[in-house]
Amino acid sequence: MGKNVMKFQNVWFRYGEDLPWVLQDVSFEISASEWVAVIGHNGSGKSTIAKLMNGLLFPQKGNILINGLEVNEETIWDVRKQVGMVFQNPDNQFVGTTVRDDVAFGLENRGIPREEMIRRLKSSLAAVRMEDYELQEPHRLSGGQKQRVAIAGVLAVSPQIIILDEATAMLDPNGRKEIMQTVKTVKERDDVSLVTITHDLNEVTLADRVLVMNEGKVWMEAPPKNVFAKRDELKEIGLDIPFVTKLAAELTDRNIFLKTEPLNHDELLEELWRFHLNR
């Protein structure tokens, strides 16, 4: 992992002076080209973190640095060039009257030359499989299609950090998988850092590192395998573990000892096969 591109230093946040703290002394770093998943029950502070990351909110105490630049009212425009954000509900982020205009909006704002703009427009729409809808009006699209266009809009601007705030929550499973695949491809191609805020456990397994939030505090920070190994503790704070992890734990209880903590079907099958051969 390279240098940090984002740093939260002892961040405190609340939505009003007489309201409870939503975030309490939150500190973490995200490295260049790292994929970090943020999980936590509803109300644990996940989405507040996302909004702080690109200056939609500012902390009352502590600092947030993006590539060493402190996020504040003077720097938000520079920050937002580097931090692209996709929200849960795409209806709240449409500006264009056609799919093409909407994806082009961010590019126009940044003064990208026309030829380059057309190239990026095509490639980002193709990446989310919406190339046939260029001239459609956004409000005629289904929820999943809208979200894919919103993701294309962010991809087109190719920021250094992309935040997905439950961006796949409204998609069907197939759509989810495709978006995750798309994001993965883009991450590798453009070497971006990814922050995915999600309830989808299988999405979490794709990340390099997981930030578990509980009641406004960082509860744990570790690779997915280590996080899911804490299945009882996770349950206590309202979280679940993936099917494979559950099954692996049940197998361990039955004296099937696995060498590594499997995260997907292949890894678990491999472990079972190895056990079978060595029995």
Binding site: F243, K246, L247, E250, L251, D253, R254, N255, I256, L272, W273, F275, H276, R279
Partner: peptide
Amino acid sequence: TIKELAEELAAIVKG
């Protein structure tokens, strides 16, 4: 259930 499945799997891999 997952528990029952684990039971069946254990039998399979243990031969």
